[in-house]
């Protein structure tokens, strides 16, 4: 028997063993992630006649999304909120990460970073509730300002888009501070020194050297923010109330009150489509493996 054939045999046996190790995880993912996803796709093409589900290849649900104002407006609301949150969070988190990376003395750095992201671990639902506590009509801000005599009537802070954005930004500033900090700290300090040495001032050093070098980290963090934000139900539900509905809120309405699984599926597919577009737009700079 030739050596090549021998090697082939061992490889096959090796391969079989390898698959044995991979199989449980793979089967789990196929059964509980891929299959549901395919079914959801099929469901989005089914229709509801009365209370009965009719499978088929009908574009009716997607047509409905384009026609009914409360549906397509929901998509717009979701996009607006998500883009605002992403941009504001990056703009707030970058200076914070910068200060912790380059201004805080080395021995306090880890502590400062830990403190900056600790509330990240508050329970998700509780964090939104805590903001409600701060922003509600009878909440901490209004009570305090009225107690101090600064305002006579309570301000409308909760149940607004501002409240939703605030709750989101709070969460994502922590997340982005962490990713951007990790990016800044791994740059050789000699990049900054070299730029300064060649006559760049602090702004030029940032603009021409540090910003381009940290762009992949920023884009990765921003993409993560986008994905998590656009799919979230809890924050807009608690803080935004029912003044304007985001896509996840509409999906939950379809599931609950009307049991309209086909329409909910179509909305979910649209949500996935938007995330895919965001991925393609940022793929050039994305470093998902470095998360």
């Amino acid at each position: 028997m030739s050596d090549a054939a021998n090697t082939q045999r061992t490889l096959d046996r090796e391969g079989l063993r390898g698959w044995g190790f991979v199989a449980p995880a793979l089967l789990w993912t196929l059964a509980f992630f891929v299959l549901p996803f395919v079914v959801m796709g099929a469901m989005s093409l089914a229709t509801l006649e009365g209370r009965t589900l009719v499978w088929g290849l009908s574009p009716a649900n997607y047509a409905e999304l384009a026609e009914k104002a409360y549906l397509w407006r929901g998509i717009l609301v979701s996009l607006e909120i998500t883009l605002t949150v992403t941009v504001v969070s990056v703009l707030l988190a970058y200076p914070l990460a910068w200060i912790i990376a380059f201004r805080v003395p080395a021995r306090w750095q880890r502590l400062a970073l830990l403190l900056a992201i600790l509330p990240f671990w508050t329970s998700y639902v509780v964090r939104s509730y805590a903001w409600l506590l701060v922003l509600a009509r009878e909440g901490v801000v209004n009570r305090t300002l009225m107690g101090l005599g600064i305002i006579a009537e309570p301000l409308t802070l909760a149940n607004t888009r501002l409240a939703t954005v605030t709750g989101f930004v709070h969460f994502f500033v922590m997340l982005l501070t962490l990713t951007i900090f990790a990016n800044l700290i791994q740059l050789s300090p000699n990049y900054r020194r070299a730029a300064m040495d060649l006559g760049a001032n602090a702004f030029q050093t940032f603009r021409h050297v540090i910003l381009p070098l940290t762009l992949p980290g920023i884009v990765t963090g921003a993409f993560l923010t986008f994905v998590l934000c656009i799919g979230d139900y809890v924050t807009p539900q608690i803080l935004g109330g029912n003044t304007e509905l985001t896509v996840p809120q509409i999906i939950m309405v379809q599931l609950g009150r009307r049991a309209d699984f086909p329409l909910a599926s179509a909305l979910a597919i649209v949500l996935m489509g938007i995330v895919t577009l965001a991925y393609l737009a940022s793929a050039r700079w994305l470093r998902l493996d470095r998360l």
């Binding site: 992630f33 549901p36 996803f37 079914v39 949500l271």
Partner: peptide
């Protein structure tokens, strides 16, 4: 295989839950 195993990371929890809910109810 690696891509497939990582894929759920990029999908909203809501969608993961919705997909499973549909299959389980079916």
């Amino acid at each position: 295989v690696r891509g497939l195993l990582i894929a759920p990371l990029t999908v909203s929890y809501l969608i993961v839950g919705l997909g499973l809910l549909i299959v389980l109810t079916r």
